[in-house]
Write a protein that binds this DNA or RNA. Structure first.
Length: 260
DNA sequence: AACCCGTGGCA
DNA sequence: TTGCCAAGGGT
């Protein structure tokens, strides 16, 4: 569950499933992953995106071996202390893996609450404190029911109450939906800020560099990288930040993925 | 709080 | 083609 939640951060289920299967088969326990070089974790992550997650998951595995006897911790604060584990992932693991009663809020839940409860077409800018409080007030008292409610809210948002064209005719709570009752009003206050353009961004260049590093086990010289991006200054910046993140390591013969 | 971090699908 | 969106987290 922890591995799947890492992979599912900002990434759709359909793209995660095959990577998750292969990952779990290869590294069934935290100790298995911690024993592997971080480079292999980054390679196995393949093109899921945000490769820092692969590195953080590897570091989290090491931390679980060191601090928790190789087990995934059950307490929220222990989960939150793991690298790459934030409010969503910690609560998802505690609630879905361990059955603890916690509000779990992801982008789907936020949208469902915004529409069905508040009557808004879109959720406002995310606020962890507000979002958790809102979900908390809706959560059933019993542990098992709370777990189901958390999962149901996410699933409803992911499959029916979707962002673009919600399938209200198939919605099990259409009759109680405040947004529907209000006649589907449009813009309600501030929207979440727009994502920065990807084309031509540092993120794109970082992705291209990472693709080269994943493709080989040999060091990649700076000169070889020159062909993947025309702007040398931007390419250097991408390399520098990747090194800063620990995703790339500078050696005598060029750049490699982290061996340890 | 605002911004950065990959990649791909879809209208 | 462009913009939106995606089971978020770190700084």
């Amino acid at each position: 569950m922890l591995v799947s939640e890492f992979m599912l951060q900002q990434t759709q289920v359909a793209r995660v499933t095959p990577r998750w299967e292969a990952w779990i088969r290869r590294w069934p326990t935290p100790a298995d992953l911690a024993a592997a070089p971080p480079a292999e974790a980054v390679r196995a992550w393949d093109r899921l995106g945000y490769p820092r997650r692969a590195l953080w998951l590897h570091r989290a595995a090491s931390a679980m071996v060191e601090r928790h006897g190789g087990e995934v911790p059950r307490e929220l604060d222990e989960l939150l202390a793991l690298p790459g584990v934030g409010p969503y992932t910690a609560r998802a693991v505690a609630a879905f893996a361990f059955g603890e009663r916690h509000p779990v809020v992801d982008t789907n839940t936020r949208r469902v609450i915004a529409r069905a409860v508040l009557g808004h077409g879109h959720p406002g800018p995310p606020s962890t404190t507000r979002d958790l409080a809102a979900m908390s007030s809706l959560l059933p008292v019993a542990d098992a029911a709370a777990r189901t409610f958390n999962a149901a809210a996410m699933e409803l948002g992911a499959t029916v109450c979707v962002a673009r064209a919600p399938a209200c005719d198939r919605c099990p709570i259409a009759a109680q939906c405040a947004w529907r009752a209000a006649g589907y009003p449009d813009h309600e206050g501030p929207r979440a800020p727009r994502q920065a353009r990807f084309e031509g961004s540092d993120r794109q260049v970082r992705g291209l560099v990472m693709r080269e590093l994943r493709a080989t086990h040999r060091p990649v010289a700076r000169g070889e990288l020159a062909s993947i991006w025309p702007d040398a200054e931007q390419l250097d910046r991408a390399i520098e930040t990747l090194v800063g993140d620990g995703l790339a390591v500078v050696g005598d013969d060029g750049l490699t993925l982290p061996a340890a």
